[in-house]
């Protein structure tokens, strides 16, 4: 067991962890932050995406011990301080960018770093950035649209040719 200390959604936490404890297990089992989901075991689906030191990483492919001292962000920390949806979350709701909701936390976390790195991404850039976020429900149409809308772009003409 190793002691790790990190900041999760702005709150400092310290816990004894097993060496083989993944961040997904740390968040879900130790901190009861169950918004981070596990959709595969080959590091491809992105349902587990979280932020570590401001970057999106797969929570299922990083050990808790590797996050000692890190700033960690999860879906539970994304809403505005008053509990209302942030701009990206709101755009997902406005544009029906989610159905079953299982991949959604990972999508929102990816979208957040995308827009930080690239505030006005094109459709192609969004689709490329979502390479590691698999959604089985939406067909991606409304996810891409929501991210474009969250970046302030006009989406009213999409597919209305």
């Amino acid at each position: 067991m190793t002691k790790v200390t990190m900041t999760v959604n702005g709150k400092s936490v310290s816990k004894e962890v097993r060496g083989n404890m993944l961040m997904t297990e740390f968040l879900r089992d130790e901190l009861h932050l169950t918004g981070t989901h596990v959709g595969c075991d080959t590091s491809q689906c992105g349902a587990c995406n979280i932020h570590v030191n401001g970057e999106t990483v797969k929570g299922c492919t990083i050990f808790a011990a590797e996050c000692d001292g890190a700033e960690v962000g999860t879906i539970e920390g994304q809403a505005n301080a008053d509990g209302t949806l942030n701009v990206i979350q709101q755009a997902f709701q406005d544009h029906h960018g989610l159905q079953c909701g299982f991949c959604t936390p990972g999508m929102v976390m990816s979208a957040a770093t995308l827009l930080k790195e690239n505030p006005k991404p094109t459709e192609a850039e969004i689709r490329h950035y979502l390479e590691g976020n698999i959604c089985r429900c939406t067909g991606y149409h409304n996810i891409v649209k929501a991210i474009m809308a969250a970046s302030g772009q006009d989406v009213s003409t999409i597919a209305a040719e």
Binding site: S43, Q44, V52, T56, T61, G132, N133
Partner: peptide
């Protein structure tokens, strides 16, 4: 390579 999350690690 891979996807953004993979590239970050």
């Amino acid at each position: 390579i891979g996807d953004p999350a993979v590239r970050n690690r």
